[in-house]
């Protein structure tokens, strides 16, 4: 049997985030190709119950680091705990979601383990018992195949790319509690407060549907019509760089090279002409719809479907029509 596939999961408030199901499912797939077990780690406070769920998604062993010290996220505490577990398990590869948590932890683990990190991967493959990773560079303008030059490798997985398997409730993971020997004095950086966004807002990097607005929106208030459309499709509202730079939307909503690279099922671009840096950030969306009054806008070259017209007429109509279909 080959060395295990080690999956770092992510939870918030005692519930797995979707990216954990994606990572566990991909971990299972890779482990099956390697002929090796999946070892998952769950770090948090009051998270024992998640071990069973990890089993349903493919984990053979679930290591649970449950401690009050993890009520808030701590990069140092998480790194130390996960590092120790990795050293004990001695895996072939470590998979971690490329969420804001994973992007924070993965480089730290790689530096401590002196190993390669393939960041924000969009595909993994096994060749001759070795894991190869495909990732993007220049915000999707270039795809790169990378391989590890170290015995251990870490791959962080871009959210929304790797399909989550259907949970198999007959699968059981062996649950192994981990001893957490971290005290408050070990932590130099401490979370003092967690400010949640308005409601349970879906982040564009993890949304299945994105309705994005650009310069054509003409101002911040007009984004309300996009909010309405997004609400019908249970999606999130994104923005182009010019909309963000004009102060109409916050940077967390920006799609493109100095924003986020996204891959939703549906991307609806409203009043976005399609600058190279924006197209790069959204072109791996499964279905792209463009609404723009300029028939020559570059966005139409990338869109599956386009409507040439005034978005202030088209978007409300689209909202109404979709409401009928969805309900």
């Amino acid at each position: 049997m080959s060395k295990p596939v080690f999956v770092v999961t992510e939870q918030r408030d005692g519930l797995f985030r979707k990216v954990s199901f994606e990572a566990l499912s991909e971990g299972r797939r890779i482990a099956d190709s390697l002929g090796s077990p999946v070892v998952a780690i769950i770090v948090g406070s009051g998270v024992e119950a998640l071990a069973e769920t990890a089993g349903h998604y493919g984990a053979d062993r679930a290591l649970v680091a449950d401690s009050d010290i993890f009520i808030n996220y701590s990069a140092e505490g998480y790194t130390k705990t996960i590092l120790k577990a990795i050293q004990q398990v001695d895996p072939e590869i470590v998979l971690i979601p490329a969420s804001s948590m994973g992007k924070d932890l993965a480089p730290r683990l790689a530096a401590r383990l002196d190993c390669g990190l393939a960041a924000d991967c969009i595909a993994l493959a096994v060749d001759n018992g070795r894991v190869l990773a495909k990732r993007t560079m220049y915000a999707n303008k270039i795809l790169a195949d990378v391989q590890f030059n170290s015995t251990l490798g870490i791959a962080s997985l871009r959210p929304n790319i790797f399909p989550a398997a259907q949970p198999d409730t007959s699968r059981k993971a062996t649950v192994e509690p981990l001893k957490v020997d971290i005290s408050q004095t070990d932590l130099k950086a401490v979370v003092k407060e967690l400010i949640s966004g308005a409601g349970e807002k879906i982040d564009i990097s993890e949304a299945n549907v994105i309705v994005a607005g650009g310069r054509g929106m003409k101002g911040p208030d007009q984004f309300k019509i996009l909010e309405k459309l997004a609400a019908v499709l249970k999606g999130a509202v994104g923005a182009s760089r010019s909309a963000v730079d004009s102060g109409w939307r916050q940077h967390a909503d920006q799609v493109g090279q100095t924003g986020k690279t996204v891959a939703p099922d549906i991307y609806i671009a409203c009043g976005i002409s399609g600058a190279i840096q924006h197209l790069a950030g959204m072109s791996s969306s499964k279905c792209i719809v463009a609404i723009n009054k300029d028939p020559d806008a570059p966005i139409f070259q990338r869109a599956d479907y386009g409507i040439v017209g005034d978005l202030f007429e088209v978007v409300p109509k689209l909202t109404d029509e979709l409401k009928k279909v969805v309900e």
Partner: peptide
């Protein structure tokens, strides 16, 4: 610790409708 084996352009999307 990590090597780039090869790079390529992403698949081009078919012209829109």
């Amino acid at each position: 610790k990590i090597d780039v084996v090869s790079v390529e352009y992403p698949p081009t999307r078919k012209g829109g409708k």
